[in-house]
């Protein structure tokens, strides 16, 4: 089950408003390679995992992704705090604003609402781990593109942290795959008794 700890995994303390940036960063909240997709993907896949290590990794990384979701939501929320209504249109934030105000809504940077179509839970332990490795790389690239979109250190620090986490997660899923190969190979071992009298 999940317990909430009332603190952030990494602090989010934004001083400068920037709704145009929020419109981009929201993509890591509800977009194709974002943290909501990641947590749902891993937490859904854990039911059909086969090795104890991969069950643990799916569970734990899925849980950590929820903490990352919280960070992204906080960034978007703080970037839009007390914004001047004149800024909204200038920032290209108006189309999001009319549907959601300055609230946080799971969608991509181009306004596509979150959908489970961004993730897969194939029920096949090998397929699922490959899916996850690809997902971590897509997320890493997205953070890199987002980091190109701002100079604000208050935003860059959490983004840099999140990008690094994707690299570590990729490594862990790759290691889980190793255990799954061993499991698959073990399952297919056929032991045949050598008949008596058979020459070497």
């Amino acid at each position: 089950m999940w317990i909430y700890e009332k603190k952030m995994e990494f602090p989010v303390k934004i001083k400068k408003q920037d709704p145009a940036l929020a419109k981009l960063i929201i993509t890591q909240y509800g977009g194709p390679d974002g943290e909501l997709g990641a947590s749902l993907r891993y937490l859904s896949q854990r039911y059909s995992a086969v090795t104890p290590q991969s069950k643990a990794i799916l569970n734990d990384i899925g849980t950590e992704e929820l903490a990352h979701l919280e960070m992204i939501g906080s960034i978007c929320h703080q970037l839009c705090r007390d914004i001047d209504p004149e800024e909204i249109k200038k920032a290209g934030f108006d189309s999001y604003y009319v549907d959601h105000g300055t609230g946080v809504y799971p969608s991509s940077a181009s306004g596509v609402p979150f959908t489970a179509a961004v993730l897969q839970s194939k029920g096949d332990p090998v397929t699922d781990l490959y899916e996850n490795m690809a997902a971590e790389q897509k997320a890493r690239s997205t953070y890199e593109y987002l980091m190109q979109m701002t100079d604000d250190p208050d935003v860059l620090e959490p983004l840099r942290f999140l990008r690094e986490r994707e690299i570590v997660h990729f490594q862990r899923f790759g290691e889980a795959l190793e255990g799954v190969w061993e499991y698959m190979d073990r399952k297919r071992q056929f032991i045949v008794q050598k008949p008596e009298g058979m020459k070497e």
Binding site: M133, R160, F161, I167, Q171, F173, E175, L177, W181
Partner: peptide, 25 residues
């Protein structure tokens, strides 16, 4: 099959560096 090399623990970063680095390794 794709293979990712298993990590081996050698050293850890100083605790104060870990948050800004995004990892303890």
């Amino acid at each position: 099959r794709a293979y990712v090399p298993m990590q081996k623990l050698c050293t850890l970063l100083e605790p104060t560096q870990t948050l800004l680095s995004g990892t303890v390794f």
